[in-house]
Design a protein around this nucleic acid. Structure first.
Lengths: 212, 212
DNA sequence: ATGGGATTGTGAAAATAATCACAAGGGAGA
DNA sequence: TCTCCCTTGTGATTATTTTCACAATCCCAT
C-alpha cells in the first residue's frame, strides 16, 4: 500500500488538486478534522469517491471522526509533488503567457514562473515584478541559470512543435502545452495538454442541445 | 440514430473539439477525404475510438474511402452548436479576462466576447478592438443589448459565487467558470468548470513520481 | 462488369471508473 | 470500562469507456 510504484487511477489523480484546495481552505479556517461527506459537498463529488481515492494511498483517516486536515494536506502535497518547488519557463510572451506569469494561483501551489521567452525583440524587457522576457535563443542558458524544469508553451499553434523540440533539446523534463496541437516528443518527456477551447465547446454543445 | 434526444458519452463529446480542429486543418489544406487512422495519428487517439465516436451520430463515413472532410465538419459544427454564433460576457477584467477577450481561438469557433465587466472603476473603458469594460452593475442591461448568452467568470474565488448569482439573475443560461470554486446555481444553468491548476498539478505529480 | 484493396461501422470483450453497502474501528460520554 | 454513534475503508456491483476484431461495403483499376 505504501509502495510508491503502483499506478493510481488517472481519474483519482485529477481530483487531488481539488482535494488540496478544499483542505487548504479548512486549514485557513483552523478546522482540524473534516469528514469525507463534508468535503464532498464542497467539491461536488460523492463521499465514497473521496474515500476510495484516499484509500489508494493508505488509511489516511480516523474512523468515526474524519480526516486530519493538516496530515492529509501534507500527504496530498507529497502525492502531487508539491513538497518540492518547481520553476516554470513561459515560452510565448503574449497575453496568455503574461496572464499565467502573473497568476497567483501558481505560486500558491509551489509553482513559480521564473522567466518568459519570446522571439519578438519588442517584448524583450524586464517586466513588472522583476520578471524578464528573454530572447528564445537563451532558453537553454537561462534554464540552467534559473533552475527551471517545466516549459509552458503559450505560442501559436504553427510553431508549437518547433518550440517543443527546442525545449526538449534544452533538457526540460516536462511541457505544459496550451497550443492546440499534439506534440511529437520523446516518450520520457511529460506533456500535459491544456485546451481552453475544449471546455467552451463542450458548454456550447450542451447549450445547443438544451436550447437550440 | 438520428434521434436528437439520446445522450452521447461524455467522453465522446469532449473529443469533438479535437475532431473539429483537425478537420478544419484538412479543410484549409483542401483535403477532401480523410481516414480515421490518419486523424487518429494527428490527434493522439485510436482510430477505432474515432469511428466509435462518430457512429453515435450515424454513418458519417464512406467505407473503403474515409470521411468527407466538409460534410463531417458541418456535422460536427452542428453537434457542437457551432452553427449558431454565441456571444460571451467576460466578468472580471484582470489579466486572464483580458487574455480571453483577445484570444483568437474563440472567434474561430464562433464564440465572440462582446463585452467585459468589472467592479473596479479604473478598468471601465473602451479597450482596444472596440471592446468595452462595463461596470458590473450594467450586466443585465448589456446582456440584453448585446445579446450575450454565456457568462465567463474570471474573478477571484472569493467573489465567484456572488458573481455567479448575479449572472443567473441576469438570465444567463450558461457559465464558464475559471474560478476554482464549485458554484451553487439552479440546475437549469449550464456550468463548465475550467481549472488551470488541475493540469499543472497533474503534471507536477507525474514529475514527482518520475524524477522525485 | 468484376475483383482486389481499403476503410468503415459495430457487436463483443476488456479495461477503467463510480457507486453501493456494510463490517471494522475509533471517539466520547456515562 | 462499556456502549452507542459516527465515519472510515473496502470488497462487490454496476456503469462507463476503450479496445478488439471482423463482416459489410464502397472505391477503383482493369
Amino acid at each position: 500500500m505504501a509502495d510508491g510504484l503502483i499506478a493510481f487511477p488517472k481519474a483519482t489523480i485529477s481530483r487531488f488538486p481539488l482535494y488540496f484546495r478544499v483542505l487548504t481552505d479548512y486549514n485557513h479556517q483552523d478546522i482540524a478534522l473534516v469528514s469525507s461527506e463534508e468535503m464532498a459537498q464542497k467539491i461536488g463529488v460523492t463521499s465514497s469517491q473521496i474515500r476510495k481515492d484516499f484509500s489508494y494511498f493508505g488509511s489516511l483517516g480516523i474512523r468515526g471522526a474524519g480526516y486530519d486536515v493538516t496530515y492529509l494536506l501534507d500527504m496530498i502535497k507529497e502525492i502531487l509533488g508539491m513538497d518540492k518547488k518547481r520553476r516554470l519557463a513561459v515560452i510565448g510572451a503574449g497575453k496568455l503567457g503574461m496572464a499565467l506569469a502573473g497568476y497567483s494561483g501558481l505560486k500558491q501551489h509551489g509553482l513559480e514562473v521564473a522567466a518568459l521567452f519570446d522571439t519578438d525583440r519588442r517584448k524583450w524587457a524586464q517586466g513588472p515584478g522583476g520578471l524578464t522576457v528573454f530572447p528564445l535563443t537563451e532558453l537553454a542558458e537561462q534554464k540552467e541559470k534559473l533552475g527551471m524544469e517545466i516549459a509552458v508553451l503559450t505560442v501559436p499553434a504553427v510553431v508549437a512543435q518547433t518550440v517543443a523540440e527546442l525545449a526538449v533539446k534544452s533538457e526540460f523534463k516536462a511541457i505544459w502545452n496550451f497550443a492546440p496541437v499534439r506534440l511529437k516528443v520523446p516518450s520520457n518527456i511529460i506533456v500535459q495538454y491544456e485546451d481552453l477551447v475544449v471546455g467552451i465547446l463542450t458548454l456550447s454543445h450542451h447549450l445547443a442541445r438544451k436550447f437550440g
